[in-house]
């Protein structure tokens, strides 16, 4: 585990795109700092009051901003990590990994955990450092930041389960990225249909049912984000089905990935 963890870390920092994380975080920190120097001007006269003195609640907007930042970083992490499995099992490299005294399940699970932890910690580091700057500037701290960090790990787990499956199945980075986009698009479309009650209104009962099943089977990533918002900002009821079915989907995906990997010839 230690070796694969270090390998994943080395692979991450070998990619120049990882510095995009730091650039985005740096810009976010600057924006957070800038928001602290916002001053009230009435009729062209500077009142000399900052956002905090005005009594505006900065806690929730700050958390929402951090949630958006971490969603963006999660998206980047998923794109960056899409090539990990196809690269690990290309001709000539697969032999190196598979000839070691590890079962295939163990090798893949260890790699999955390494990628999950390394990329999850990177997003956490970026998001949390930005939040800390905001918290220090505005003298606020809300424990809900930890819920957002937990949600990042859950979302990353789900995306990685899909990414690993396609990576093993096709062995190609491009296919993995395309499939991730496709999943997101289909799920968003189905979500939209479902929320606007259009599934039942197609006139074709069988097709409507098919779409209905698809909606229930596929991971509900956008709803997961809404769910986290609802919980974090106490703005609605918690629908546990969305969370459990999506996490269940990820576990099923991981199971199929292992089953496929065990049977694959290299």
């Amino acid at each position: 585990m230690n070796g694969l963890f270090k390998d994943t870390l080395a692979e991450l920092f070998d990619k120049k795109t990882v510095y995009l994380f730091f650039v985005i975080t740096f810009l976010s920190i600057l924006m957070t700092l800038f928001s602290g120097s916002f001053e009230m001007t009435i009729n062209g006269v500077d009142q000399g009051l900052g956002i905090d003195e005005l009594g505006i609640d900065v806690d929730t907007p700050l958390l929402k901003g951090i949630a958006s930042l971490m969603s963006l970083l999660t998206f980047l992490a998923v794109m960056l990590s899409a090539g990990i499995i196809p690269n690990m099992f290309i001709k000539g490299r697969a032999d190196y990994f598979l000839a070691k005294p590890l079962s295939r399940s163990s090798l893949l699970l260890k790699k999955f955990l390494s990628v999950w932890v390394v990329y999850g910690l990177l997003i956490t580091l970026c998001g949390f450092s930005c939040y800390l700057v905001g918290a220090l500037v505005h003298s606020v701290f809300n424990n809900l930041i930890f819920l957002l960090i937990g949600a990042v790990f859950v979302k990353l787990f789900i995306w990685l389960s899909i990414s690993f499956f396609v990576g093993i199945f096709t062995g190609k980075t491009v296919s993995t990225i395309m499939f991730l986009f496709l999943t997101w698009m289909i799920q968003s479309g189905l979500s939209m249909l479902y929320s606007t009650q259009m599934v039942a209104g197609f006139g074709y009962e069988a097709f409507g049912k098919f779409l209905d099943y698809c909606y229930y089977l596929l991971p509900k990533m956008s709803e997961m984000s809404t769910l986290v918002d609802k919980v974090a900002f106490l703005s609605g009821s918690f629908n546990s089905y969305i969370l459990y079915s999506t996490v269940g989907f990820a576990f099923a995906m991981l199971y199929f990935t292992l089953a496929l990997f065990k049977r694959k010839n290299y």
């Binding site: 390998d7 692979e11 290309i90 032999d95 190196y96």
Partner: peptide, 8 residues
């Protein structure tokens, strides 16, 4: 024709 991880 090995292709060891090049980032190492």
């Amino acid at each position: 024709n090995h292709r060891f991880p090049e980032h190492l």
